[in-house]
Amino acid sequence: MATALMCEKPTAVSSLNHRCDLQSTESIQTVTCEIPTTLSPYTPYLVGDYSRPQDRGIINPLASMPQSSAKNLMGLVSEFGEDKTVAIAQVMSGLSNPYSTAGMGAATSVYGGRVTGFVGAVKAYEAALKQHKQAISYPGGRQMSKVRIQRAHQKMVKQFNLEVELATAGKKIRKGHPLMNATRARHIAESGRTVAKLELISQLEAQNLVNFSKYTQHLGNGLAVIDFTGRVGSIHNTYKAGGNWEKKMFIEASGFAAGAVMGSLAVKGGLALLTLATPMGWIFLISAGIAITAAAAGASMVVDHQAKKAADRLYDPILDWINSLWN
């Protein structure tokens, strides 16, 4: 368990006591065990009276994060708050990990209860959709069915938020809810969130946080664009390294388009196949739906990889051919 501090602007250590709840006895150290007088922006610092080697290891992923990701992280924290950002990063890591169901492992019995809750909400939503067709044949049925669908959808969203809440619950109990503690609320309001105090339990949490800020762009107003594969980042890196970034952009764009077309066709085809087969119950549909999504995702990744390689080979011949049209 480690507490990391990161700020957006150079901040003097003495001014930190009033922001973000720091006791004056707590010392601040850099990753390399020095004690600074001013905090430089977008670098993580370890907070605490003592720090074991394990704790130091926890903020290593944060220290090796590129500055663009650090800026993203600060934006996300100012929007959602420190605890929620860490929690969302945890939930997203579960989603984007293709082996997440296998990885639940020992925690499955605890997690199993929550999965039922969420899957139950999804089932209710799909049942509402299924009944919609019959409902619209009755007078006044369309409106009633619409309301039912909306309610089921809200329940589904609520269940997802519960997942995030549960992840933050532990942290909240330690710190106290801002509404219960007026001083803390004032500190939060005053600090304007230019300083982020992140509480991390393990290096895995820190790594998930770093991954999350890599592929999320904070756009302000609660909007975050999540680019799951960091394509824009790699084009930008090529540009900065002085490489042939136009070619890189062509390659990434081809891979994206190919993957997207392939993936959407796989989902469409999967759905069509489902209907053309014999009618079935909803539980089968959910597992089939997961299978379709997994297949679409897998196929999309293979196609993306191959399309990128092909685009790499074809870029120069294509350019030569286009030039030859002029001459």
Partner: peptide, 17 residues
Amino acid sequence: LFVFTGVSLLVLSLYMT
């Protein structure tokens, strides 16, 4: 055209892999 593109992409990618 969408179906053709998707299917050919899949076939070509599988062949290459």
